[in-house]
Amino acid sequence: MKPEWLSAMKSAISEVLETMFFIAVEFDHTANSSSTPCSYQSSIDLVSQRQGVRITMRFTAPFARALSSNFLSKDERKVPEEELQDVIKELTNMIGGVFKGHIDNGSLVWSLGIPLCEVPSPLSADQEAFLTVHFNGTYAGDAILEVISRVDR
């Protein structure tokens, strides 16, 4: 995992959240020690000629509701569950796109997949890189970056 990719992830998440969700977050690399579980998860794959990378975004329910409220300019209590999940998927889609723009260097051609909603899963020990996301000093979720395939040449 290239160190600059973690930096690119932070940059991508911040740009998307600030531009379209009007939310600024902070990051660290410590595992979540709060009691708030993540209730929403979405992932998207990026594939090049040499490897594949998966970005997974996981969020707590309060943060997901705040995101959807800001995105849709709607009272968070009035956002149906299906719509909330769609917002999380689209957020992941945009983060994937901006991240791809950061890591595109001409030598590898990256393709962006279609984002998927998933049942939230706990962090596993072999996940190579993750960021813990905080909003207003409260745990909001995680961003996980993992290599999913590698072509040996």
Binding site: M20, S68, L72, S73, E83, D86, K89, I114
Partner: peptide, 12 residues
Amino acid sequence: DDSKSMRKVIRK
């Protein structure tokens, strides 16, 4: 757009 929420945002 395959995202219903994005279509709503653009429309708005």
